[in-house]
């Protein structure tokens, strides 16, 4: 199950609201303080749509990620599922 976790605080709420509008994302109910936003294919998040300032934008995955970052710039974030280990020497 790929996706990312968003802490249930106002700072990141617009990120969750934006994901609700994306048919490629499934927004789960808040559990234990975090919203899980699930995806099954590469998704693209547009910073302008999230209304996040740059400082928060570049920390918007601080809740945790199950996937990989394929692109992260001031305007766009793209995430995709991954089977790769977290660290390069894992999985040997």
């Amino acid at each position: 199950m790929s996706g990312f976790y968003v802490l249930d605080v106002p700072d990141f709420r617009s990120l969750v609201e934006n994901a609700r509008r994306d048919p490629a994302c499934t927004v789960h109910d808040v559990v234990a303080g975090y919203t899980f936003i699930e995806f099954h294919e590469e998704i693209e998040i547009d910073r302008a749509a999230t209304k996040l300032g740059e400082a928060v934008w570049f920390g918007c995955l601080t809740g945790g990620l199950d996937g990989r970052i394929t692109h992260f710039s001031p305007g766009k974030l793209r995430l995709a599922p991954t089977n790769l280990p977290i660290l390069p020497d894992q999985g040997h």
């Binding site: 899980f36 995955l61 945790g64």
Partner: peptide, 16 residues
């Protein structure tokens, strides 16, 4: 930080 976010994701999943 991507490695860290993934490591934290495992902890948050365990918490959930």
């Amino acid at each position: 930080i991507e490695q860290f976010w993934r490591a934290k994701g495992e902890l948050v999943r365990a918490r959930q």
